[in-house]
Design a protein around this nucleic acid. Structure first.
Lengths: 212, 212
DNA sequence: TTCTTCATGTAATTAGTTACATGATTGA
DNA sequence: TCAATCATGTAACTAATTACATGAAGAA
């Protein structure tokens, strides 16, 4: 027996719930939308619709473009019910992987310049992502009428990502200023208890709704 | 020949650069420190030090506690050089996986209550993480003298995570307010061009350093 | 006509997870 | 002395990545 479907599979199920997609279109569409919060390699996405067919959640239709075959998937009634059921289940919180921060954690075993580079790279990443995001947002806003029914939802997700990119950039600016004051031999650096407390105090945002 | 080591492997290399660790200690220590920005299953971590030994970056010493064997790993000179070289290479930017947001992207195929639950869960996650983070920070600040040499670095990472948790909570509050205004039939919801523009405007944080 | 890019995948490999197993230690 | 938890792993499985392959369409 097959095990429960993964988030990746539900991701493509959600896409074909909007309209039928060919495998290639699916891979591209994931990259632009779902992939922003659930990144997967393209080749992986070619397998997922097959699983959906196995479960009866999608139907495959074979077409040919010239002499090339292609497969177009569309959702079934059972697929819509499965999607709705999945939406009602609790979703996992964010999972963050940040190699740059791993390097920073071990900064004392390298030199200060390396650490500053690592931080600068994170900042550049944030600017790059944000630029792409703005461009996508612009196209989205200009496409008058198109996707109008999905606009509110898209903005919900876009706002999160935008805020995240801004956070990375702001943190990088602060971190750069901090590290610039470090000695070249990082391990010899000491900071005052007051500084420690001040940074820790950032964590005390009020945790009940409406007071943040 | 073996391929390049992974970030996970360098993570344990970084740990044993501070002091020797037994495998079990490594697994625990990863969970508490590196794991916050590079989460991996414990069992995975039991394999990594073996790879380090293969490469000559670590030495294994067999000990026994009672009749139970255990293995303690310590870093070699080659290991320190490899770590320093790795620190000098560019590090990847953050990678975010957020199942809750995937569900929100497809919210129109479920109902409004589900969407609100999903958002609420994200907020609860942020509060929970932040609470744990504060507790860890407190213990850290109180351990007078201990880890004093690593304090500045730990705070650098802690500040990032703290800001991230706060971001998730603030976003969730905003998103809750938005979704509460949606009709039960989400797909029928339309928002004004002004609202669209207002949300998109969040993305225009100034991207050059010092102006954020 | 040839080169490049788009479109459509498959194969091989690896990184990672879940589940299990079992000895030692501590506390009720 | 019994149960719980700490300590130390192994085995089986799966999800995901990297690398490759090839036909069609459009550009130069």
């Amino acid at each position: 027996m097959s095990r429960a479907l993964t988030t990746t599979t539900y991701g493509v199920l959600g896409l074909i719930a909007v309209r039928p997609y060919s495998t290639y279109e699916l891979a591209k569409a994931m990259g632009l939308s779902v992939g922003r919060v659930w990144p997967r390699a393209e080749s992986k996405l070619f397998e997922e619709p097959k699983k959906l067919v196995e479960h009866g959640y999608a139907k495959a239709r074979e077409e040919t473009i010239g002499r090339r075959p292609r497969t177009v998937y569309s959702i079934t009634g059972a697929g819509r019910r499965a999607l709705a059921a999945w939406l009602a289940e609790p979703g996992d919180g964010p999972v963050l992987e940040f190699e740059g921060l791993v390097k920073l954690m071990f900064a004392e075993h390298g030199n200060r310049t390396d650490a500053l580079h690592t931080i600068a790279r994170a900042r550049a990443w944030a600017v790059e992502m944000n630029t792409a995001s703005i461009a996508a947002g612009q196209r989205f806003a200009e496409g008058e009428g198109r996707h109008e029914d999905r606009r509110a939802i898209t903005l919900l997700v876009g706002a999160f990502l935008t805020d995240f990119y801004a956070l990375v950039a702001r943190w990088a600016d602060w971190a750069t200023a901090e590290v610039e004051n470090w000695p070249d031999d990082i391990a010899s650096h000491r900071i005052s208890p007051e500084t420690t407390r001040a940074v820790l105090a950032r964590a005390t945002w009020s945790q009940s709704e409406g007071e943040t």
